[in-house]
């Protein structure tokens, strides 16, 4: 029975390895070819960095964390057995690093000020007030950049778990099953939480964006 189970697990692993497009690079790295690792970084840096930025809402933090993520990958790739796809594993490391960092920053009162204002402060400080006073349909009128800032601000108002989930789903385009693997939650839980997060976000945006 145990042997059967082991075989099945092994079979699953082998299957995952065969179907994982990154497995070749991983093997190269594990055999001592550093170029394998470099290529993995180049392949995934945009996604990891982007996700970090969207979860953290801050470029410097994103850079710092993304670097740490890849250093973790470098140091523990030998322990990666291919039970899941490499990208799933990588996303899990990324989300965990972000969560830890948020916890660390939260203890220091980093996010006490309103995150929306933070997002909009830089160039157009008047932006949010303008939005409320004038009656216009902003999606057409606003620059892409401005919409992004507003959306980012609202995403930052979600709690970190919801934020990570909705980003993995709608930004990264991952399946519910993959997200549940990344976060270690049941698929049903993930689905219902993402649905709730979407509705929440919709209500937040409705007030400002879709009048």
């Amino acid at each position: 029975m145990v042997a059967l189970f082991r075989n099945r697990k092994l079979a699953k692993r082998l299957k995952a390895q065969v179907s994982d497009p990154d497995w070749e690079l991983i093997e190269r790295f594990l055999k001592g070819d550093e170029a394998g690792f470099n290529q993995l970084v180049l392949n995934y840096q945009n996604r990891v960095y982007g996700l970090c930025y969207r979860i953290m809402g801050n470029l410097e933090e994103a850079e710092e964390i993304a670097q740490e993520v890849f250093i973790t990958v470098y140091n523990s790739l030998s322990e990666f057995r291919g039970d899941s796809r490499f990208s799933t594993w990588l996303y899990r490391i990324t989300v965990n690093h972000c969560k830890n960092r948020l916890k660390y920053l939260g203890r220091r009162g980093y996010f006490q000020s309103d995150s929306l204002d933070q997002g909009l402060e830089t160039e157009e400080g008047e932006f949010s007030r303008q939005m409320e006073s004038e009656d216009f349909s902003p999606l057409e009128r606003l620059e892409q950049k401005e919409v992004e800032r507003l959306v980012q601000g609202k995403i930052m108002e979600l709690d970190e778990e919801q934020r990570a989930m909705i980003l993995l789903r709608d930004l990264e385009g991952l399946s519910y099953q993959e997200i549940s693997e990344i976060l270690g939650l049941k698929e049903g839980t993930v689905k219902s939480r993402i649905h709730r997060a979407r509705l929440e976000l919709k209500d937040k945006l409705k007030k400002e964006l879709f009048k």
């Binding site: 969207r54 992004e148 709608d170 930004l171 945006l205």
Partner: peptide, 18 residues
């Protein structure tokens, strides 16, 4: 509105790493 919300996230442009 819900579609637009999802779209708004989807079209978020990820900044390139430094």
């Amino acid at each position: 509105l819900l579609k637009l919300t999802c779209q708004a996230i989807t079209i978020l442009e990820s900044p390139s790493p430094p």
